[in-house]
Design a protein around this nucleic acid. Sequence first.
DNA 1: CGCCGTTTTGAGCCTAGTCAATGTACGTGG
DNA 2: CCACGTACATTGACTAGGCTCAAAACGGCG
Lengths: 228, 228
Amino acid sequence: MQAQTATPTTKIAPIAFGLRAPMAPRTPGRGPVGTAMALAKGEELFAEGDEAEYFYQVVSGAIRSYKLLSDGRRQIDAFHLPGDFFGLEAGAEHRFSAEALGNASVVAYRRHRLGALIEEDPAFRDRIMSATLRSLERAQDHMLLLGRKTAQEKLASFLLDMAQRISEDEEHFELPMQRSDIADHLGLTIETVSRTLTQFARSGLIELLPASRSIAICNKMALRNLDA
Amino acid sequence: MQAQTATPTTKIAPIAFGLRAPMAPRTPGRGPVGTAMALAKGEELFAEGDEAEYFYQVVSGAIRSYKLLSDGRRQIDAFHLPGDFFGLEAGAEHRFSAEALGNASVVAYRRHRLGALIEEDPAFRDRIMSATLRSLERAQDHMLLLGRKTAQEKLASFLLDMAQRISEDEEHFELPMQRSDIADHLGLTIETVSRTLTQFARSGLIELLPASRSIAICNKMALRNLDA
DNA sequence: CGCCGTTTTGAGCCTAGTCAATGTACGTGG
DNA sequence: CCACGTACATTGACTAGGCTCAAAACGGCG
């Protein structure tokens, strides 16, 4: 929107960061020194504890990032969709693991170049900063969901959120993840997810095609009410 | 630590942000244009939906930040202790409410000055960025707790975390919040918090003085094991 | 066609929630 | 000084929402 032309540092007050930046994903291989990568279904980008050498931006497909407890219980803290940044850490190690949900592509940025990128390109810095703040906001909303919502409310929130993020008309869309991913994201079991979805379908709130990754939202109002 | 003297923009590569910054709270009224504020017990700093004119750093005491559902269910997403930043938003509005747990004091920074502060003072920028990333990490850990841990595990995590954050010897400390705050932080009820703590006490894991805000950790190992 | 990964459905159980009462600390005013 | 009120914490009895275990249905694909 504003001038992307230079003449930067002190005068121009480059759109106080904290404003929502546009976030168009860059074409792979271009932009401030990112490297394009293609990922196969289920492929792991990094694991918890790995050295955080890169951070990433999704170009196509979807990524799940998650943590595990010692006995295998899993919490998926976010699904990352095109445009989203993820994997940027305060410390030296990744604090969660990341895998492609299906085939996907991302741009990888070297973390140690971050300081330089930020000096060179205030717009990039603002994008990173607001992306980070937005992740934090999403995390905060999600804590409310995990700590205080019922199974029905969790699924209503989830469906509305996905509709908004991946559907053009916000009514019909294809879920990029399977039931167990949804369960591990919402703090439920796969059985409860399944049962609740069928229950929604029976009540006419949504339509589940038998193929069953596709969702049609029939009664958005009712879902909103459920969402509390 | 490093030069606070100028000569900035392009050359100096000011400690690749993402490194843990020292975070000593500034003396009120000083630092990059912060304003000191004293808060009485229970006093509200801002509410969800308020215009995000300021963001804050705790100097003394403790702050709870939380969200509410329409029917009053509450999720406390964090307790902020001395040194912590909070209340910085990507959008124009605060996305959660914040109140003092007891008497407390904070430094308020004008959000619209943030852009300028960041230009002027790379060290300040790095502190803000790593504080934000650290909040995100805490939020991610907390999502795992909320979504996948049992009541016992939640309380074990909580006690170990508080011990580390507020106790010098990591064994004896006074909780700055009441049971209902703990419950709303861990996604439990006050009764479950109470029952689980007495159960810990009976098993000799902790000691609860009858005055009862004070905790002594007797068997840290056992708590760690419980924590999963 | 038959296998395999995934989803759905069913039956029973358990953890944590609900409702209710009692206990304890503390401050205020008679 | 003590009676009372208020706020917070503990304990108990019962309930229920979501989990576990188990089996069946479905769809894609070799």
